[in-house]
Computed example of a mutant assay.
Amino acid sequence: MSKSNHTMIKISVGKKQMSLGKNCHSNEIYIGIDPANNGSAVVLINGTAAISVLWNKRVRKKKRVWKVSIVRMIKRTEQLIIVDRPSKIGSVIAHLPELEKTPFKLACEDIYIRAGSGRTALHLARFTGALLGGIELYHDVDVRFVPVMTWRKDVLGVNRRIKREEAKRLSLEIMPKLLPHLGIALYQQGRQDHISDAAGVALWSKREETDEQQPYKPEPELLSGELNEAS
């Protein structure tokens, strides 16, 4: 990306640092993506929530842009970048230094199409394709799509027909328990379900790859509420 197309600010958010291991070449890396105009990508390194990339749509001088926040939970730092295309969000993710010399698995929440939502689904499909294309091309990696109801059931242990808002609430409540360092991103970037959902997709990918099947077993009261089709 040329310097004229984005701005970057680096912010320190703490002094304490955590180590992921001395040999970076032995790292196991999984990336989960929750795609949308306001979405997120979470990078797991050796089972630890290490990096959170959050983007939010903005309008500047009558032009559409995205504010991208990159929080490294290991170093406790944040970068802020402004980009003007979905493909540049993908480029930001693709060029993370942590991904340069280590193969990784890429997973993305699949698009859910409801009756009457065809136009929205088309826009989301275009956005997602532009974002993922840069990552796939730069790293020569294939993306694996997972239906939202599948990863929620396998990771969160919830009913496939749970209401959307209840599922998002549980995602925010459960994922930091499964990936404790995720709380750093939720504190710094805001308590947004895009982050916890992306982390859930990444953890689902890791478990599928390593054949780990350990769905979370929430307390009965967490699953209260009327059931409806997930979206």
Rank of each mutant, 00 (worst) to 15 (best):
K3D: 14
S4R: 01
N5I: 04
I9Q: 15
K10C: 09
S12M: 02
G14P: 04
K16Q: 13
K16T: 12
M18E: 14
G21H: 04
K22A: 14
N23H: 04
H25E: 15
S26M: 02
Y30W: 01
D34K: 00
P35E: 05
P35V: 08
A36H: 07
N38C: 03
N38G: 05
L44A: 05
I45S: 13
N46C: 06
A50E: 11
A50N: 02
N56C: 07
R58I: 12
V59K: 07
K61F: 02
K62L: 10
K62Y: 14
V68N: 03
S69K: 09
R72L: 01
R76L: 05
Q79S: 07
V83L: 06
K88M: 10
S91Q: 15
I93V: 10
A94H: 00
H95P: 00
L99I: 02
P103C: 08
A107E: 08
E109S: 07
D110Q: 04
I111A: 13
Y112Q: 09
S117W: 03
H123E: 12
H123M: 11
F127I: 01
L131N: 06
L132A: 02
I135Q: 02
E136F: 00
L137R: 08
Y138I: 11
H139S: 09
F145R: 11
V146T: 06
V146L: 01
G157L: 00
G157F: 08
R164D: 13
E165L: 08
E165G: 01
E166R: 08
A167I: 04
K168N: 11
S171N: 10
I174C: 07
I174F: 03
M175Y: 06
P176A: 01
P176S: 09
L182C: 02
L182Q: 05
I184F: 12
Y187N: 15
G190L: 07
R191N: 15
H194I: 03
D197M: 01
A199I: 06
G200W: 05
S205P: 00
R207V: 00
T210M: 08
D211S: 07
E212H: 01
E219M: 01
L223P: 09
G225Q: 05
L227T: 13
